[in-house]
Nucleic acid binder design. Structure first.
Lengths: 335, 335
DNA sequence: CAGTATTATGAGATTGATTTCAGTATATCA
DNA sequence: TGATATACTGAAATCAATCTCATAATACTG
C-alpha cells in the first residue's frame, strides 16, 4: 500500500492524497473519498519516504552513560513523557561510560538520523566540545551547566553544601568524602566544591587524605568506605557524592560495627527511593529527576522549533533529613 | 554531500559508488579514487535513503512498561550491548503500564519503522495476541513464556518455590503473600503458583486473606504490608513477589516494631542490588537480568536473519540467602 | 467590472540511496 | 579457438513520499 494506490483508488492525484495527509487544500468531497479509502486499506504512509523527503525523522537521540542507574532512568522516564506527547520517537544510545562510544553516537546522530539530541553529560572533554560545535542538530546538555548550550542541570553545588551542613550539624569535624572522578563536572567537581566550601566556611580542617574516589556503583562505594576508614578510623561522618555511593559506604560502616548515626553520620545526594526504605533512612538532598527529564525534553522541542537557543535551566532541590544524620520518625520519610 | 557529488568528484557513476559502499565489484583504481573523495568530503550516506530503498532500518523497537525499575533497566542494558555490536539502533517506547499505549507502539513499530521488536510482556490480553499475530516484523517476547513466539523468560515458578522454601525453613507456617495483578502471567500468576504449591506440598494452611495485591513500587509494597499485617498480625513470614515489594514491606514491618527475621522472615525475588546493601540483607532468588536482555537481543538477531522462529529460552536462577531468613555473614552477600 | 485572493487540483521534479540490466573486457576451460 | 565464467561499469528504474509550479475556478475588493 503506497500513496499511488490510494490516489488511484480514490480517483485523485498522488499530490492530493499528500495534501490530505498534511492538511493542505482538499475539497470536502475528495477529502471524504480519500478518508474512506485510507480507512478501508489501513494505509500508513511510509516513515522512510517521509523522512527522506522532509529531512525530519521525528526521532530524538538520547545518549546516556548507563541505564541501570536510578537517577538516569528517572530522567529518561520524564523525557519519554514529553517526547511521546509531541509525537517523537526516542533513539536510546547507551555509551556505558565509554567516552569514545559517546563521541561515536554523537557523530552518528549528528550526521543524519535524528532531529535533536539530549546528551547526558558525564565527563565532557575537549573532543566532546569539538564534536558538539560541529553539530548541525539541536542539542540539550543534561546534567551539567555548559556555556553556550541549552542545558538542564541540578544545583549540585548548593545541594552539596546542604548535605555538608547536615553532617556538620551532627557535630562532626572529621568528615570523609567519597566522590567520583573530577573529570565529571557536576557530580565530581561541583559537589566536592560545595562540600569543601562549607567546611572551610566553618573553619574545619580537611585534607585530601579524607578523600576517596570511586565509580557510580554501591559496590564501589562500599570498598571506598573500607579504604577511607582504614586510613582514618576516627571519622565521624561520611559524605557520599551520590546516594548509591553513600548506601554502599553505609553498608560497610555498619558492617564494621559502627553505629549510624551515633558514631558515623552519613549523607548522600539525589534522594533515591532506597534511601527511605533502609534503616536508618539516608539523609540526602532530593533532586527532581523526572521533572528534570521533562524540562530537557521541552527545551529540546523549543530548540527544534527554532526558539530559545542557549537557555540554561538550573533545577531546584529539597533537603531530606533522615536517620543517618538524626533519628528519623519514619523510614519512608516525609512525602 | 550526496552520492551523486561523490560520483562526480571521483569520476565514476553513482552506481559504482554504491557498489563501493556495499562491497560490490569495483576496480582497485576506482576504489582508491572513491575512498579518497569520501575521506576528503567526510561523506556519510543518508540513512533515510538507504532505509527507503532497502526496507531495512537497522532499528529495533523495544516496548517496556516502565523504565525506572532495576530489573527492566538491567535487561535493557543487556540488550544494548548485543544490538550495538550488531550495528542496530534502539527505539525505546515507554508504555508506562498502559495497555493501549503498548498496543499503539506495537502497531506503530509493526507498520513500518523497525526491523524487529522486543516486547516486555506484562499483562498480555487477547488484543495483544491479535496485534502480535498481525505483525509482519520479527518479535521477541521478554519476561513470559508464550506459545508460538520466540521468548525469553525467567523461571518464575521455580524461583518462587525456592523463595517459599526459604521461609518454610524458618519454621513459619503463617505466611503472607504480597503480589501483583494476576493479569501478569510471570510475576503475578507463576510466582504465586510456585509459592502456593510449596505450601500445599508441606501441608500448610493458606487462604486468600493472606494475599495482598499491589503495584510494582516499594511504596505500594509498604502499604500492602501494612494492610496485610493489620488483618493478620500473627504472620511469621512475608513473601514479596518482587524484591522491590519485599523491601517496601520490610520497611513497614521494621517500623511496626517487629524484628526481622526473628519475628517476621521475608523473601523476595529478583535479587536487586539494594537487597545486599540493607540490613538485614534481603533473601531472594537471583535472576540474571543482564544476560536475559542479551539473550533476547540475540534471539531477535537470529529471527531477523530468518533463523529459529519460536525458540523459547528459560533462564536460570540462583538462591540468595541473606539476613531476612537467617543471620547473614555480610550484607553484600556472596559474590 | 477589472484585479487580486483564496481554494483546489494534478503533472512532474525531487529526495538519496540501491538494484536491475545490458554491455564490455579479461581470464579460464575444454 | 570458441565457449563460458568472472570482473567491472554506467544508464535508468525504483523506493514512497513531499514540493514546486502551472492552471483553473471561485470569492472578495475597490
Amino acid at each position: 500500500m503506497n500513496i499511488n494506490e490510494i490516489a488511484k483508488m480514490a480517483g485523485v492525484s498522488r499530490a492530493t492524497v499528500s495534501r490530505y495527509l498534511n492538511d493542505g487544500y482538499v475539497s470536502a468531497e475528495k477529502r471524504a473519498r480519500i478518508q474512506k479509502v485510507i480507512e478501508e486499506t489501513n494505509y500508513q504512509p511510509s516513515f522512510q519516504a517521509q523522512m527522506l523527503r522532509t529531512k525530519r525523522t521525528k526521532q530524538v537521540g538520547i545518549i546516556i552513560p548507563q541505564i541501570n542507574l536510578e537517577s538516569i532512568s528517572r530522567m529518561i522516564s520524564g523525557i519519554t513523557v514529553v517526547l511521546r506527547e509531541a509525537g517523537f520517537q526516542m533513539l536510546l544510545a547507551n555509551a556505558e561510560h565509554n567516552e569514545s562510544e559517546e563521541l561515536k553516537y554523537l557523530k552518528l546522530f549528528a550526521e543524519n538520523q535524528v532531529d535533536g539530541i539530549i546528551l547526558f553529560a558525564t565527563a565532557v572533554t575537549a573532543e566532546h566540545k569539538r564534536a558538539l560545535k560541529a553539530l548541525q542538530v539541536p542539542v540539550v546538555i543534561l546534567g551539567q551547566q555548559m556555556e553556550g548550550y541549552s542545558c538542564v542541570y541540578q544545583d549540585d553545588y548548593n545541594a552539596a553544601r546542604e548535605a555538608a551542613r547536615m553532617l556538620l550539624a551532627e557535630g562532626a569535624d572529621r568528615i570523609g568524602y567519597i566522590g567520583v572522578t573530577q573529570k565529571n563536572q557536576a557530580v565530581g567537581r561541583m559537589r566536592k566544591q560545595g562540600f569543601l566550601d562549607v567546611l572551610r566556611g566553618n573553619g574545619i580542617h580537611w585534607d585530601e587524605s579524607l578523600y576517596e574516589e570511586c565509580g557510580f556503583s554501591a559496590e564501589e562505594g562500599y570498598l571506598a568506605a573500607e579504604a577511607l576508614l582504614a586510613r582514618h578510623p576516627e571519622v565521624q561522618a561520611v559524605f557520599g557524592a551520590t546516594d548509591t555511593i553513600a548506601l554502599g559506604a553505609m553498608s560497610w560502616i555498619l558492617e564494621s560495627g559502627r553505629r549510624v548515626p551515633e558514631e558515623v553520620a552519613i549523607a548522600g545526594i539525589g534522594d533515591l527511593i532506597i534511601g527511605k526504605l533502609i534503616r536508618p533512612g539516608l539523609s540526602s538532598v532530593h533532586f527532581y529527576y523526572n521533572a528534570t527529564g521533562q524540562e530537557a525534553a521541552r527545551l529540546l522541542l523549543e530548540l527544534m522549533n527554532g526558539n530559545s537557543a542557549g537557555k540554561e535551566v538550573k533545577m531546584g532541590y529539597r533537603v531530606q533529613q533522615r536517620g543517618t544524620t538524626r533519628q528519623a520518625k519514619s523510614p519512608l520519610g516525609t512525602p
